[in-house]
Design a protein around this nucleic acid. Structure first.
Length: 483
RNA sequence: GACCCCAUCGUCUAGCCAGGUCUAGGACACCGGCCUUUCACGCCGGCAACACGGGUUCAAAUCCCGUUGGGGUCACCA
């Protein structure tokens, strides 16, 4: 039976590969390998506007870099495909029709506007937020008619009005929710694609996933999922909700307070083994309590039931210490190989060299002049700190500009090229009444730590999106520390 | 706010399920020392925690209840 264990990681390709995804993937991977089962990668791209192929590409690459190879997935195929939800629309539609005919789900014709007003009203009266069941009791005939007529609608799950939904979480034991306070979840959106809830449950069943191991933030939708399984008459998988990685202030880990992109760690010189090792330490301990171990040893010793529940604070210091231990254990030849794979890969060097060529007189000047192309976090010297503040602006104003820049212009979905970066920066100036003259030097300093650099946009393009965003965020902290 | 989850050093955690062996163990960080031409590594040592209040019990970090605190979720996003 153990060989039948099937787990999955189901990321949504809407941005940079996230450290939280890697964390959950690692534990899913470890359980599957430990049990001799399969680990599946499924892409949850049912959000038409936010999903993008570049993000999917990066996620696959990151997980592969970490050594978390999947047995089935969009790139390697498998018996339960397709593994991209956007390619499974028909499957969801068929399943949702089953639910409609059995009465477990119903069409809802409420407009977004009505729903918004409803929420507004509920907020005003301090009532519980949620769908009011307006279309719940529509006559089946009428509903069918309106659907046939092509009226825009969604399909909602009909939750039981009373009683409670009780489930088991592998780590937490029994979890119970009063049904009355769970509203009728949308299963199929008006664009014909499923919501997470439907797609997730249908796919986990069809792909024969035995252990649904995911982050804690999903606990509150657990009853909806359980009701869905019931509605389909399917057997429940084992549910296991892992604790959320946290910032130092205990809030859910976020890019504002931590580097969260796997791309960052890769770029900043962390080794994948060290990364996995550190992530494994988040909530789990080796039987002998040693904190250095290989992926193989982790797989060997891993017991899901031994995961502890306190939300672990992601500690860059400890990760860096561990990474140092790994580096020291590598032979110089091995280190050389690592270096060639990352910072000084031919590919990276070939991006850097055209930019520095006319600015250096000796080969060795590359390492001084272009150091910001190769390192992770920067240190701003006094001169840099002085020029980090825009001429005629205060540190606070500059910090605010950086924040808006990172949040609004240098979007995670922005196609990261010199020309688009330039457009983004100029758009920012226009929108927030900054001149390019004011803005560009501080940004240059933030991103490179220097006032003399190759052209800003080309430089940013090579430095990379996540590294630029990270450095801008660090610069914000520096600016906030100024009076 | 409602619902749900969680609670051991600043941080990651062991111990808790099967209560005594816990004057609570390890690791990061920090401090001190050793090694050393420097720095780092390494080694040795130090600082530092059972959130609070009630029970249950001969005995509670461990079991129960409550309080407090933290977190998550409340979308046609996942």
């Amino acid at each position: 039976m153990a060989g039948d264990t099937r787990t999955r990681i189901a990321p949504s390709p809407t941005g940079d590969p996230h450290v939280g995804t890697a964390y959950v993937a690692l534990f899913n991977f470890a359980l599957a390998r430990h049990a001799g089962g399969q680990f599946v990668l499924r892409i949850e791209d049912t959000d038409r506007v936010r999903s993008n192929p570049e993000s999917e590409r990066m996620i696959l690459e990151s997980l592969r870099w970490l050594g978390l190879q999947w047995d089935e997935g969009p790139d390697v195929g498998g018996e339960h495909g397709p593994y991209r939800q956007s390619e499974r629309a028909d499957i969801y539609r068929d399943h949702v029709e089953q639910l409609v005919s059995s009465g477990a789900a119903y069409p809802c014709f409420c407009t977004r506007q009505r729903l918004e007003e409803l929420r507004e009203e509920q907020r005003r009266q301090k009532l519980q937020l949620g769908y009011d069941g307006h279309c719940r009791s529509l006559a089946a005939d009428e509903a069918r008619q309106r659907r046939l007529a092509g009226e825009e609608h969604v399909i909602r799950l009909r939750m039981p009005g009373d009683g409670e939904t009780v489930t088991n979480d592998l780590l937490r034991g029994e979890i119970r929710f009063a049904n009355a306070q769970i509203d009728d979840q949308v299963l199929l959106k008006s664009d014909g694609l499923p919501t997470y809830h439907l797609a997730n449950v249908v796919d986990d069943h069809l792909m024969e996933i035995t252990h649904v191991i995911r982050a804690e933030e999903w606990i509150s939708s657990l009853p909806k999922h359980v009701q869905l399984y019931h509605a389909f008459g399917w057997q429940l998988p084992v549910f296991c909700h892992l604790p959320l990685l946290r910032n130092a202030d205990k809030s859910k880990i976020s890019k504002r307070k931590n580097p969260v992109s796997i791309n960052y760690y890769r770029r900043a010189g962390y080794l994948p083994e060290a990364m996995c090792n550190y992530l494994a330490l988040m909530g789990w301990t080796m039987p002998d309590e040693r904190d250095e171990f290989s992926r193989e040893e982790f797989i060997e010793e891993f017991r899901l039931a031994d995961v502890s529940l306190g939300g672990p604070v992601f500690d860059l210091d400890k990760l860096t210490w561990l990474n140092g231990r790994y580096i020291r254990q590598l032979e110089p030849e091995q280190l050389l190989e690592r270096l060639r794979e990352e910072a000084v890969s031919d590919a990276n060097l070939l991006q850097v060299l055209p930019l520095v060529r006319e600015r250096i007189d000796t080969l060795d000047a590359l390492f001084d002049y272009g150091q910001f192309f190769f390192i992770g976090d920067l240190v701003y010297d006094d001169d840099a700190r002085a020029r980090l503040v825009a001429k005629g602006r205060t540190p606070a104003q500059t910090a605010k500009a950086f924040r808006l820049l990172v949040e609004e212009q240098l979007d995670p979905l922005l196609d990261w090229r010199a020309s688009t970066i330039e457009d983004a920066l100029r758009a920012f100036c226009e929108r927030h009444e900054w001149t390019s003259k004011e803005l560009f030097m501080p940004v240059r300093i933030a991103v490179t730590g220097r006032s003399a650099t190759p052209p800003l946009f080309d430089t940013m393009a090579v430095v990379g999106r996540e590294m630029c965003r990270r450095r801008l965020r660090c610069a914000i902290e520096v600016l906030r520390g100024m009076k």
